[in-house]
Nucleic acid binder design. Sequence first.
DNA 1: TATATTAATGGAAATCATTATCAATAAGGA
DNA 2: TCCTTATTGATAATGATTTCCATTAATATA
Lengths: 159, 159
Amino acid sequence: MPGRWCRGPAKWWHGEFRGCGYRITIPRQIILQVLDESKEHLSAEDIYLKVHNIYPAIGLTTVYRTLDLLVNMGLIFKFDFGDGRARYELARGANEPYHHHHLICTNCGRIIDYTDFVDEELELIKKTEKELSKKYNFEIKNHTIQFYGLCDECSDKEK
Amino acid sequence: MPGRWCRGPAKWWHGEFRGCGYRITIPRQIILQVLDESKEHLSAEDIYLKVHNIYPAIGLTTVYRTLDLLVNMGLIFKFDFGDGRARYELARGANEPYHHHHLICTNCGRIIDYTDFVDEELELIKKTEKELSKKYNFEIKNHTIQFYGLCDECSDKEK
DNA sequence: TATATTAATGGAAATCATTATCAATAAGGA
DNA sequence: TCCTTATTGATAATGATTTCCATTAATATA
Ligand SMILES: [Mn+2]
Ligand SMILES: [Mn+2]
Ligand SMILES: [Zn+2]
Ligand SMILES: [Zn+2]
């Protein structure tokens, strides 16, 4: 039986690393594995703890450094949902990108991914991007849309 | 000649304070004045320094506390543009709300307000809000849209 | 207007997420 | 296998924001 983090078949992101001249290390592999297996919006410490279960030698510094690298490579997104720590999420699944936006409960911090209206939205975004790049000569790389409010539970409690 | 911060005619936000049972203090008045006079996206320290010029007795703690209060009252918005400090902006001018979104240069941190497509956008937002409130039973209070990329200057430098 | 009540303030210390340092380690090419 | 050097991780430092608490001042009331 293979160890928990022995090198299995090459992953889709190996090429990304090689192409940039980065080394494929155990911490990097496990951090990506943890991000891939989670559907939540993990903080650096969340990730540190999960990686620590698999690979106890991990250091928190390495987690921060790696996350920074992955953000710059475009493999993950970094968000601020207003709770005082950054949160991260894989930019795409193993195959296609999973384009979505967020509902954020300002009371309990719950975060909901939604994909509704991405088509209409994408159309508007495209139009806006086009116009804005021209008007401000701004080269747009990506965007975020977030809705803030109260989730069902917190909405109930208010009454 | 009136002093720099002697009480002039009642401001539009006096009612807001009174209604909530909050006291109208000199620090609060000047913080609002500074926000009202600036068109930038000020950090707590930016605001502290500007207020300090007018009212040197101000404390940084009071600035943070007041900003928090104003955010909760809905008089100002708090943003994270990724530079490690929160930034604030008046939710509306003296009269009407100034609904806009942001272009953020990830290289130099420049922030551009834009109001293009707010009509189309508002329509989409309304539709999305309606659908999402129903689907997730989520009570939406507000939203943010941010575009990230390179401003004209930083775009030029890349070449 | 003078007084009492208590919300609000501000300086100092504490918190807490994130970064910088630097000697030790390990990935990957030769 | 060996060499080069990118990467790591423990520790200390940083910097924005909060917490504490004794003092001050806004406002209701007499
Ligand atoms: Mn998400
Ligand atoms: Mn703005
Ligand atoms: Zn909630
Ligand atoms: Zn720029």
